[in-house]
Design a binder for these strands. Structure first.
Lengths: 337, 337
DNA sequence: TAGGATCTTGAAACCGGTTTCAGCTCAACT
DNA sequence: AGTTGAGCTGAAACCGGTTTCAAGATCCTA
C-alpha cells in the first residue's frame, strides 16, 4: 500500500504526461474550465486519480494572486484577551461560515507590539486575501495597519472614533436601552451603571443606551463607573459604587463578566440580588448562567456576527460592496433582575 | 503621502534594478545571506527602504517549499467544541510561542465531516509546514488524515488507542490520583466518579488515577459514570449517581464543567457541598471559580501545553527529534472539597 | 466547396521569489 | 611569474501552477 506511493507528491506535469496532454489542458480539466474535449478531460481525471494528485496550494496562489486564506486579527493590550469566551464563539461562527468556502483561517492575536508587527508583516507580504479585525479602541495600531494594507477589511464591532466602511456590530445602544427600561419597568429608580473601559465603542454605546432610557423615564443617569471588562474589574467598580451611592437599587453592567463581579460584591456586602439590588449584564456569555442568581442580560448573537463577517468579507473579495450590518440584541430575563 | 505609493507592490526585480544589481544579489542581501559585498548590500537595503519593498510570502514559499504556516486542528463531533475555554487557553499559549517565530497559525475546526475534508485538503495541498492536532478519540478521522500526510504532526493530548510519536500531554493519571487521595485524606470513603466520554484517553487516564488511589487505600472504586464533558452532562450523571448510590459522600468529576453540573444537582437535591458531599473537578478552568462553592480541582497547565506543542513542532521542522512531554498537574484546594 | 465561425490545443510567458553554477576579480603564497 | 583559493557576481534554472495566444481542427453556411 504505502510502498507504491511516490516519494514526492506528483506535479501537474506528471499528470499531463500520463494523460497525454499538455499542462495547459491538464490545468483546465482540473479546474473545470471550458475548452477541453470530453476525451481529454476524462483522461486527465483518470490520471489525477491514479496518481493521487492534488494541486499545490502555494503554486496556485502565486499564479492566481489569491492565497485562499483570510485572517482574523484580534487586537488589544492584554495577551490573555483571547481567553474571553466572546472570541471563541465568534471563531465558531467564522469557521462555520468559512466551511462553505475554500478559504482557510489564519488567527493572529495582535495583543502585543510584536504581535501587531506580525500582523503588519502578514498583510504586507500579501499572506492573506482579506482581514477580519476585532479591535476596541480607535487608536489601536492594528486598525491603522489593517486600513493601510490594500486589502478588504471587515470590522467586528466598531473601534471608537473610526467609522469603518465595512463592519458587523451588535445593537449595543438598543440592548442597553432595553436592559435599563426593564429595570425601570420593575420599579427601580436609583440605577447605576458600570461602564467598562472608557475609549471603547462598546462601552460608549452601552452607556448611551442606558442614558437614553434613564432620561426618557425622567430619571437622572449616574456617571458610568469605569472598569476592566472582567470579573475583578466589575467587582472593584461595584465597591466604588457602593461607596459613592450606597442607596442604589439597581446596576446595569456593560458586560456579564463585570456583572458577575458586581453580584459577588453585592452579596458579600449583604445586599440581596435581586431583592435589594437588581443587576443586568450584557453579552449572555456562559458565565451568565453560572452565577447565583443567574444573570438577566442582553443577548448578543456573537456566532452570527462571526458568520456575517465572513459573508461580508466574501462579498468584498468578489468585488461587491456590502453595507454595514447591525445585528439585533435581545433581553434575556433570568433571576438577577 | 499616499499618492506616491506605487499602485502595485514593488517586486524584487524593481529593487534589484534600482540598486543596480541582479535579482540574485538582491535576494541574498535581503536574506542576509553571505557572498554579497558591503557596498551592494547597502545599495539593496536602500532600494528596499525607498521602494517600501516587502517580499511576497507566496513566491518565497513556492521557492523554498516552506509555507511559513502551521495548522492547529481541533477535532471532535461537536461544532461548538471550540467554545470550551480549554481551547482558547491553548491558543493563547500557541500564539505566544509562535510569536518568537516567523510562523503563522491556521486554525482548522475539524468538527464536522466537511471540516475534516477541509483539513485533509489543506494538508494534501501542502498548505502548511506542520500540524498540531487535538483530538480525543483514536478513531477520529482527523487522526488518520494527519498521520497520512507526510508532515510533522504534534498531538496535544493523546487520542485513545494511538500512541503518537510526538505529543504534549498533562499528567492526567497523577492529577486524578492526587485528587482522589485528597478526598480520602479528608475522610471520605464512598467516592464516586463521573468519568466523561468513554473511549477517550483523558477520561480513561483520569479514571485510572482514581482507581489507583482507591485500591491503594483499600476502597472499592465505583464504576465511572459516563457523561458529556459539559455542565449538563455532569448534571445528568450526578442524577444517575444519586439514584444508584444515594449514600455517596464524595464525587471526583473528570472535568470542571461536569463538576459544576454535579454541584448544582447536589445542592438542588438538598445535599450540602462540601459538607454532605465533597466534589473535586479537573482542569482548573475559569468556571471553577464561578461556582458556589468554588471548585477544588486539578490544575492543568493548558497554556504551557500550547507553548510546548509549538516548541516540539519547531524542533521537528528543524529536523530534530524531540521526545514526548508530559506536563505536571497539581491539586488546587478551594471550597468544594 | 470555399470561407468563415467555433472549439481545442500546446508552446511559452508569467506569478515573484531562491539557488545553482560558471566565470570573474583579487590577494596570498610558492 | 604562476598557482591557488576565497569572495563576488549575475545568467539561468527552478518551485508548480495559470493564462495568453497563435495555430490547427472541426463544423456550418452559403
Amino acid at each position: 500500500m504505502a510502498t507504491d506511493m511516490p516519494p514526492q507528491q506528483p506535479t501537474l506535469s506528471e499528470v499531463a504526461e500520463r494523460a497525454g496532454v499538455s499542462r495547459a489542458v491538464a490545468s483546465r480539466a482540473i479546474n473545470d474550465a471550458p475548452n477541453v474535449s470530453r476525451a481529454k478531460r476524462e483522461a486527465v481525471r483518470r490520471a489525477v486519480r491514479e496518481l493521487g494528485y492534488t494541486p499545490n496550494r502555494t503554486a496556485r496562489a502565486l499564479a492566481t494572486r489569491r492565497t485562499g486564506t483570510v485572517v482574523l486579527a484580534i487586537s488589544g493590550d492584554d495577551p490573555e484577551l483571547f481567553a474571553d469566551p466572546f472570541f471563541a464563539q465568534a471563531v465558531v461562527g467564522i469557521s462555520a461560515a468559512l466551511e462553505e468556502t475554500s478559504l482557510h483561517l489564519i488567527l493572529c492575536l495582535a495583543t502585543t507590539a510584536h504581535g501587531q508587527q506580525r500582523l503588519k508583516s502578514l498583510l504586507d507580504t500579501r499572506g492573506v486575501d482579506g482581514v477580519m479585525l476585532m479591535a476596541m479602541r480607535g487608536d489601536d495600531p492594528a486598525v491603522r495597519i489593517a486600513l493601510a494594507a490594500t486589502l478588504p477589511v471587515v470590522f467586528g464591532g466598531r473601534p471608537l472614533c473610526v467609522e469603518p466602511e465595512f463592519y458587523v456590530d451588535a445593537d449595543n445602544i438598543g440592548g442597553a436601552r432595553r436592559a435599563t427600561e426593564h429595570l425601570i419597568r420593575t420599579g427601580r429608580t436609583r440605577i447605576a451603571t458600570i461602564g467598562g473601559l472608557p475609549d471603547t465603542e462598546v462601552a460608549e454605546a452601552r452607556c448611551r443606551g442606558y442614558r437614553e432610557a434613564m432620561t426618557m423615564a425622567g430619571l437622572e443617569p449616574y456617571p458610568p463607573e469605569p472598569a476592566d471588562f472582567n470579573e475583578s474589574g466589575g467587582a472593584a467598580a461595584m465597591h466604588r459604587l457602593l461607596e459613592s451611592h450606597p442607596d442604589l437599587d439597581a446596576v446595569f453592567a456593560a458586560n456579564d463578566n463585570m456583572a458577575a463581579g458586581a453580584v459577588r460584591v453585592l452579596r458579600e456586602a449583604g445586599r440581596s440580588v435581586p431583592k435589594d439590588v437588581a443587576v443586568v449584564g450584557f453579552d449572555d456569555l456562559p458565565i451568565a448562567c453560572q452565577t447565583t442568581p443567574q444573570l438577566t442580560t442582553v443577548h448578543q448573537p456573537i456566532r452570527a456576527m462571526g458568520e456575517e463577517m465572513v459573508r461580508m468579507l466574501i462579498a468584498l473579495l468578489a468585488g461587491r460592496r456590502p453595507t454595514p450590518l447591525i445585528l439585533p440584541t435581545r433581553l434575556v430575563v433570568r433571576d438577577s433582575a
